[in-house]
Amino acid sequence: MSDIIDFDQVVREIEDEVAARRASGDFPADLERQLDLVFARFAPAAASGDDLDAVLAAADRASFVDVDVPTGSNIPGVAPLKRGLRKLMEWYLRYLAQQVSELATSWAAALKLLAGRVKALEAAGGATDPAGDDSRHRADPAAVSPFESRIAEALAGTEGRVLVGECGDGALVRLLVGEGLDAYGVDPDPARAQSAVAAGSEVRAGDALEHLRGVAEARLGGLVLCACVDRLALAFQVELAGLAAATLADGGRVVVVSTSPGAWARASDVVTTDLSPGRPLHAATWRALLERRGFVELADHDGPPLVTLQAVPPGEGAEVLNANLAHIEEALFGPASYVVTGVRRR
């Protein structure tokens, strides 16, 4: 019977139903957050995830030290003994608890002040919209397709594992495996990662940067960075270059596939570009970052142009016009993307 039921399709239908019920108000917008906040009241501060308000509230609650020690016991005679001890020790415990509570309360107050200042800094610094849909900022991994043969060529003969981050639907991973490489991928979209796995690729759901942070020194034979380099903040892109140097073995190959900054700025979805936490770098910048970290044989190649202006048919003045059109095309549009390759030397 299950042969005719596509469980993935069922899940998609359920997701659509939930989205519709959320939109209609059947599922109140703040219902889930309210549940999170209720549980956060009973969880230790450090278990409250990255919700700063919840962590601060938990720290506030934990700053009170209760000296009213429980005295119950299943063993006969022990409960009265505990009560007696509590009475005897109360003056001592209260004295200590008061000081600990004061210290903790001071820390909690300091944290609140700090949180307020961080929020002000975030607002002043133009942080991205926290309520926004993060998926909008994820570049399309299909942008890699014009470079597939060049990537395969750059990685040919690589020994050891080859990581593709972010790999989208896993097409590049499958291509590299087909070329005889031990390739795997990482993608931040769990649904996309899952479909890549279903298509036969070794793909893990997760963030490429986070994943690289966990990879051991000189463990990789090859590394392809795509999509994430179009949106990560500058500090994280620089960290990516450092992680590439740290995780690639001697002779390991790196490939960076990125959108050209000019093409990115002209992307049609202005909301995405305006709210993106970072911007793509120029190919020359990637070369410089990698060269400073011990990469050699660096090269970059442009992809197809963003827009191709139609050439004037042969005739009087056509040659001059076409040369000017080429200049205009270069100045206004330029290549849509580029690839930078290099080899790690230790």
Binding site: V10, V11, I14, V18, L31, A205
Partner: peptide, 24 residues
Amino acid sequence: LSLASKAPSLVAAAVHRVVTDTEL
């Protein structure tokens, strides 16, 4: 049914689908 998110409303809807759809 393998869910990419465990948002309470999604899990609840998935369970509802399973207990009400005998064929599934």
